[in-house]
Each structure stands twice: as structure tokens, then as C-alpha cells.
Design a protein around this nucleic acid. Structure first.
Length: 282
DNA sequence: CTTTGCACCTGTTGGC
DNA sequence: TGCCAACAGGTGCAAA
């Protein structure tokens, strides 16, 4: 389930392999992604040279000399590159294939088809219009976060996952950042002091940077552009650890007196699983 | 304006 | 063993 670190990991791998190469062929096996793929524009990429691959939020922007391909991985999407001079056998759920010069083969694979591809002329696209600040940029910090939460009565967990507040923070890293910042996921967003917003923004930046350094997280199906998993899931404090002892406050205790207070609990926010430690998070 | 719930989709898991 | 419901969740969109 790619969040910002996973998309960034894919971007870096694709970028190293592909920038400077020209497209030699395009095949669309399944155009029905979240929205129909722009078939005509994709086929018209034959002969186009890839100049750069950028990222905005969880979107990948493939900059070609004749326009930009915008792609989102949704929940289960992956781009992988092979250069074996033999086209690998097509797997189930391989939906789009780009052949580049130097025998590079790029496959888009997406079992659930929540991902999407769009064609963009210039820098304008409706899907990018209303996005909030990039969490790893100077446009996002504790002051910005505090201001964005001013009128938000919703739980901080929900607000943190709202793309208008900050982009790229999905369910996993929202849970983990709140734990690291010591903030209860149910706390009303607007009730957070500036001090706590500074702490939270800092933890968001740190966890995303750490996850990128670890090559992202692989819970089920995430793979980078070389088909390899990430390793950051080993660093989770709360996500997926329901009923397990808190790694911080239950550490070294026999956990006999009042085990409930040192155990990771779950609740739901907007249909998504929330994990938290009731002792460490207030 | 904020907030919530739904739809989209398939593979995996757990209970009976 | 087999069957089916529940679950996983990114995010645009409709609706409250």
C-alpha cells in the first residue's frame, strides 16, 4: 500500500534506469484502471524521450519531451523495470507495458486497479490542484500545521490524512507519526497546541525520511522498481500490533499489573484501522 | 467551509 | 475441506 516513501522509492529507481531513454513501444493490456487510461496519448509516446521523473504527493510525473504522464499507484500498483533483453512473461494484472530503448521493459502491475494514469500538458491538472504542502519541504512545518488545523474539530488522525492539510501521509505513517509524537489519535485537531504541532510535523518529516531510507514498507505487495521489497515495516511501533505490548512503555515490564494500559489498542477513523498506545498517547 | 460515507477492486484471512 | 463474509485502504466524489 504505497504511501509517500514507497512512491518516492519507486521514483528513484525508475529515474535511475530510465531518464534519457526514448520509448520504443507501448502496449495496453487493460485500460480499465481507476479511470480509463489515456490510450491515444500513451500510444503517441513512441519516440518520446523521458526527461525526468518527479513526484507530487503520491503521484509520479513522467516528464517527456512532448508532455507529462501522471500516474498514481493506488493501493496495489507497481512499476518494475527489467533490462534482460528478453521480455519477461506477462503476469496476471500486468496492465500497461512500455518498452524503452536499450531493451528496457517497464510494466505497470495493479491487481486491484485503484491506480490511474493521466495525460497532462504543462503543469496543470485538476487532480493536483487542491493538494496541500509536501511534508518533506519547507512549505510544511509546525506553524503551517497549526494554522491548517485551526478550524478542525475532527480527530487529528483524520486531519493528518486529509490531503488539504498535508499530502503523502497515509494510514500507516499517520498511525506511526502520532505515536512518535505522543498524540492520541482521537484528539480534536484544533485542540493541539503550537508546541505539539511542531512536534508532530517534525515526527512526520522524520518518519517519512526514515522510511525512504529503508526503501519503504512492504506489508503485502509493495515492491520497488527492481521488484524488491522495503524493510521499514520492521520499525513500526503500533501499526498492525493490536493487543501486542507497547514497545516503549511495556518494555522491560512483566506486564502483569495492569496489562491493558501497556497494550496497543485499535479503533477506526473514516473506515480505516487506527492503532495507538493509550499510555504513551494523550 | 468541514465532515462523513461510499464506490471502486481483488487477494487474503478467519470463522463455521 | 469448502464456502462466504469481512477486511485491507488511496482518494475522488456526493451528500450531509
Amino acid at each position: 500500500m504505497p504511501e509517500l516513501p514507497e512512491v518516492e522509492t519507486v521514483r528513484r529507481g525508475l529515474r535511475r534506469a530510465l531518464v534519457g531513454a526514448a520509448v520504443s513501444s507501448v502496449q495496453i493490456f487493460e485500460p480499465r484502471l481507476r479511470w480509463p487510461v489515456p490510450s491515444a496519448q500513451l500510444h503517441a509516446l513512441v519516440g518520446a524521450r523521458l526527461l525526468e521523473i518527479e513526484r507530487r504527493s503520491k503521484y509520479l510525473l513522467f516528464r517527456f519531451d512532448r508532455g507529462t504522464l501522471l500516474a498514481h499507484l493506488g493501493m496495489t500498483g507497481s512499476f518494475t523495470v527489467t533490462d534482460e533483453h528478453i521480455t519477461p512473461p506477462r503476469r496476471k494484472h500486468d496492465h500497461v507495458e512500455f518498452q524503452f530503448e536499450r531493451a528496457l521493459c517497464v510494466r505497470y502491475h495493479d491487481p486491484r486497479r485503484f491506480g490511474s494514469m493521466h495525460w497532462m500538458e504543462g503543469d496543470i491538472h485538476p487532480l493536483l490542484d487542491a493538494l496541500g504542502p509536501e511534508p518533506l519541504s519547507d512549505a510544511f512545518d509546525g506553524n503551517v500545521l497549526h494554522a491548517a488545523l485551526r478550524n478542525r474539530a475532527a480527530p487529528i488522525k483524520s486531519a493528518l490524512m486529509d490531503n488539504h492539510v498535508v499530502v503523502g501521509v497515509g494510514n500507516i505513517y499517520a498511525n506511526e507519526a502520532l505515536f512518535r509524537a505522543g498524540i492520541h489519535p482521537n484528539r480534536a485537531a484544533k485542540s493541539l497546541s503550537l508546541t505539539r504541532c511542531i512536534r508532530l510535523a517534525d515526527e512526520v518529516k522524520k518518519i517519512l525520511a526514515e522510511a525512504i531510507a529503508a526503501g519503504g514498507s512492504t506489508l503485502r505487495d509493495f515492491v520497488n522498481s527492481a521488484g524488491e521489497p522495503g524493510y521499514f515495516q520492521q520499525s513500526y511501533f503500533v501499526y498492525g500490533r493490536a493487543d501486542a505490548p507497547c514497545k516503549i512503555c511495556a518494555e522491560g515490564t512483566k506486564n502483569t499489573q495492569n496489562p491493558k494500559t501497556r497494550t496497543i489498542l485499535t479503533m477506526r477513523h473514516n473506515g480505516r484501522a487506527t492503532f495507538y498506545c493509550p499510555k504513551c498517547q494523550r
